[in-house]
Write a protein that binds this DNA or RNA. Structure first.
Length: 331
DNA sequence: ATGCATGAGCC
DNA sequence: GCTCATGCATA
C-alpha cells in the first residue's frame, strides 16, 4: 500500500501563498558550530551499522540518550508510551488546512476576543515593566519585513537581525531573562483577560500589523512556555506585546464574547513512533545527530519505520535541542 | 502541551 | 537535504 509521502505528499491546500520577503534568517552558522559532535565512535558504529553495534547504541538509549533527548520543561514528557501503533502508511489526506480553525474572526475588533467582562476588570493595571514594543514592532516589521503570515499558509516571523538595536530595541529585548519575564507576564495577562491561546493566535490577524497574520494555539503556547528558538521568541515578542496592549485597552472599553466556531473537515492522522523505536532513535541521535541519508535509511529499515519519518524525527530532534528551555540560553 | 509534519529559503 | 518557523492532531 504505497508508503506515501516521500517528502512531499501533501500539497498546499491554499493556492495563494503569502510568501515573505527574502529576509535573512539570521546567521545560524555559529549556532551550528556551537553544537559539537560527541561521537568519536560514530563512524565505526554507523559505518557498518551492523546488529551488534546497533544493539549497543540501543542499549545506550536506556541511559544516556534518554536524558539527552528528552525535553519538556517543567512538564511531563510522556513518551507516548502505551500509544504504540504506527499509523505510518495510510494517513495524510491531501485535504486542506486552514480555513477552519482559523475562521473565528471575520472582522471582529478587539474586545471580541476577550472573554468575560468580569475577568477583564482585573486586567486594567499593567505597569509594563518590559521594554517598549509599540513602535519597535512597527519598525521591525517594516524595516525588516519580518513577516508573520497570512492565514492559510506558512508564516514565518523572522527575528530581526542586529540592526534592530538601532531602532529602539535594546539588547535587553533579546535577553533570555527578559524574554522569560515577558512570556510569563504575557501568559498571566492573557489568562486574566480570559483569552485562550487560540484566541490570541487568531486575534493577531486582526491587529493589522504589516506582515502579521494569525498564529496557532501551538505557537502561542510555545511562546509562553519558551519552547521556541531564541530568535523566534525575539521575533514574536513585539507582536504579542502589541496584541496584549490592544487587549488590555479593549478590556476597558468593550465586552463581547461571540464565539462562532464551525467546522467539518478531513483530519489527518499523526504518525506515532512507539516507545521502543523512539528509544533507539534517541540512542542513534546521541552518537550521531545528523545521520546521512544512508544511515537514516538503515535506521528506518532496522526500526521498521518509513525513512521520511526517521528523517523528520531527526530534524525535529535537532530543533528541539535548540529551543530556549533546553539550550543554555534559557538562563 | 507536545509529537510528527510541511514548506520556504538556503546550500 | 537541512534549518527554521509554524501548524494539525492528539496525548
Amino acid at each position: 500500500m504505497m508508503m506515501q509521502k516521500d517528502h512531499v505528499s501533501m500539497h498546499p491546500p491554499i493556492p495563494a501563498a503569502p510568501k515573505y520577503s527574502p529576509l535573512h534568517r539570521h546567521d545560524h552558522s555559529s549556532e551550528m558550530m556551537r553544537r559539537h559532535c560527541m561521537a568519536t565512535t560514530t563512524s565505526n558504529i554507523f559505518g557498518g551499522l551492523d546488529d551488534s553495534l546497533l544493539a549497543r547504541a540501543e542499549a545506550l538509549a536506556a541511559v544516556d540518550a534518554v536524558s539527552v533527548a528528552k525535553g519538556a520543561p517543567g512538564l511531563n514528557f510522556k513518551n507516548d508510551t502505551g500509544y504504540h501503533h504506527h499509523m505510518n502508511g495510510s494517513n495524510h489526506h491531501p485535504h486542506l488546512s486552514a480555513p477552519t480553525s482559523r475562521s473565528i474572526h471575520p472582522g471582529l475588533d478587539h474586545g471580541e476576543l476577550l472573554g468575560d467582562p468580569m475577568s477583564m476588570a482585573i486586567s486594567m493595571s499593567n505597569p509594563m515593566p518590559f521594554t517598549s514594543i509599540g513602535d519597535s514592532i512597527t519598525t521591525m516589521a517594516q524595516h525588516h519585513q519580518s513577516h508573520v503570515s497570512m492565514s492559510g499558509h506558512h508564516h514565518h516571523v523572522m527575528a530581526a537581525p542586529h540592526s534592530m538595536m538601532t531602532h529602539g530595541m535594546t539588547d535587553l529585548d533579546t535577553d533570555p531573562r527578559e524574554l522569560e519575564a515577558f512570556a510569563e507576564h504575557f501568559k498571566q495577562r492573557r489568562i486574566k483577560l480570559g483569552v485562550t491561546q487560540c484566541d490570541v493566535g487568531s486575534a493577531l490577524g486582526n491587529l493589522k500589523l504589516p506582515g502579521v497574520g494569525s498564529l496557532s494555539q501551538s505557537t502561542i503556547c510555545r511562546f509562553e512556555s519558551l519552547t521556541l528558538s531564541h530568535n523566534n521568541m525575539i521575533a514574536l515578542k513585539p507582536i504579542l506585546s502589541a496584541w496584549l496592549e490592544e487587549a488590555e485597552k479593549a478590556a476597558k472599553s468593550k465586552d463581547k464574547n461571540p464565539d462562532i466556531f464551525s467546522n467539518g473537515e478531513k483530519k489527518r492522522k499523526r504518525t506515532s513512533i512507539a516507545a521502543p523505536e523512539k528509544r533507539s532513535l534517541e540512542a542513534y541521535f546521541a552518537v550521531q545527530p545528523r545521520p546521512s541519508s544512508e544511515k537514516i535509511a538503515a535506521i528506518a529499515e532496522k526500526l521498521d519505520l518509513k525513512k521520511n519519518v526517521v528523517r523528520v524525527w531527526f530534524c525535529n530532534q535537532r530543533q528541539k535541542q535548540k529551543r530556549m528551555k533546553f539550550s543554555a540560553q534559557g538562563r
